[in-house]
Simulated scan of single mutants.
Amino acid sequence: MKSTHQSKGGDLSAYSVFLAVANQRSFRAAAAELDLTPSAISHSIKSLEQRLGIRLFNRTTRSMALTDAGERLLARLRPAMAAIEDAVQEIEERRGTPSGTVRINASEGAIRLVLKPLLARFLREHPQVRLDLVSDGRLSDIVADGFDAGIRLAEAVAQDMVAVTVLDRVRFAALASPAYLAARGRPRVPQDLHGHDCIRFRFESGAIYRWEFERRGSVERINVDGPLTLTDQPLMVEAAIDGIGIAFVPDHLAADALRDGRLQRVLEDWCPDSPGLCLYYPGHRHVSSGLRALIDALSEQRRRWSAQAAAAR
């Protein structure tokens, strides 16, 4: 009787390569993820296809897509490989030391705001943990894309996920440079934005973000217009500093420019706090020791920030 690693389909490493390529849709990206060469990845996939007797990917010089057989194999392999990873992690955790790679998907703003302040200390205290942080403006499917967890606004987290609050509140702000306001005037109510140049934000899905304001229970959603549309919020801040128009972004991204006067708030009484940021992960998956250590560190950071905010009031 053949053992699992000697079966017709090949050994488990070949399936790991297949999963990486299926997730990345790229030999080169999969090679970077697995620390292999693109030629080694290509050879592994070709060998697996030969052993199975069926093509798993349709490949051209410009694109790569799973075949129907590849899609079926991927659907069966993901939960199986996840179960194997969970079993290995549980055994490793018996050593009592957090270890392993933790892959996190988050927006650039979330990474800068909640992860950057603790990275150096966390990695120093947990030398056997490796963090793989992917900055992504989309609402990615963290399970399908192979992430252990994500960080997003609380309102964007699916109900079937376990959510851990890592930042209590996030405040959006409408911002403009003093030069722009001197030339164009200050909007007094959200509808005034129709007469201003606004710096719009486009999601990676292609949708344009509608600016949302609220005051005393009255909600205004504005489809703004303007000369510039971006997919990067820090760039929106820079464009506002340059006087291109009014930007609407989480105010922590513009803290320095607000402090030194390069930007000013407008419509401030229409910009209330919104629900904060959560780290989230699928409830059916085992929480690795590395992810648990990160959650503990983020929770402690949140408690410290809350205490500092209370002391400042």
Rank of each mutant, 00 (worst) to 15 (best):
A110D: 06
V114R: 06
A173W: 04
G96K: 08
R94E: 15
L139N: 06
G137C: 13
V134K: 10
A163D: 04
A120D: 12
L133G: 03
A154K: 02
E108K: 06
D160V: 11
E125D: 15
V164F: 08
I104V: 15
L131Y: 07
R130G: 00
L167H: 07
H126T: 09
R169K: 14
I151G: 04
D145P: 00
D160S: 15
G100T: 11
V143W: 04
S140P: 08
A163K: 02
L123N: 10
D145F: 11
R103Y: 10
A174K: 03
A149E: 07
E155L: 14
R103M: 03
A173E: 08
E108G: 07
V134M: 08
G96H: 05
L119F: 10
T101Q: 11
V114D: 03
D132L: 12
K116L: 14
A154Q: 04
L139A: 02
A154N: 09
F147L: 08
P98W: 04
I151W: 01
R112A: 14
L119V: 12
T101G: 03
A173F: 01
E155H: 12
R171L: 10
R95Y: 13
G146M: 06
V129H: 09
R124Q: 06
S107Y: 08
A106M: 03
G146T: 01
A174E: 10
L139T: 05
D145W: 09
A163H: 00
S107H: 13
V129L: 06
R171D: 10
R124I: 06
R124Y: 09
S140G: 11
Q128H: 15
S99C: 14
F147R: 01
D160A: 11
A156C: 04
Q128D: 15
L139V: 02
T165Q: 15
Q159A: 12
Q159S: 15
R103V: 03
Q159M: 12
A173Y: 06
F122M: 07
V162S: 06
V157E: 06
F172I: 13
L153P: 01
G146W: 00
R103I: 01
A149I: 11
G96D: 03
R124N: 15
L131R: 08
F172C: 12
G150Q: 07
H126F: 05
G150T: 11
A158R: 11
Q128Y: 14
D141M: 06
A158Q: 14
D141N: 15
E155A: 12
T97F: 13
F147E: 04
A110I: 01
S140T: 11
V166A: 07
E108A: 15
A163G: 07
V162H: 13
L167N: 05
S135H: 12
A149P: 02
V157S: 01
R130D: 14
V143M: 09
L115A: 05
F172G: 00
A120P: 01
D168N: 15
V143C: 08
Q128I: 04
R169F: 00
A173T: 08
R112I: 11
L167T: 07
L118N: 00
F147D: 03
L115D: 09
L153Y: 11
F122D: 00
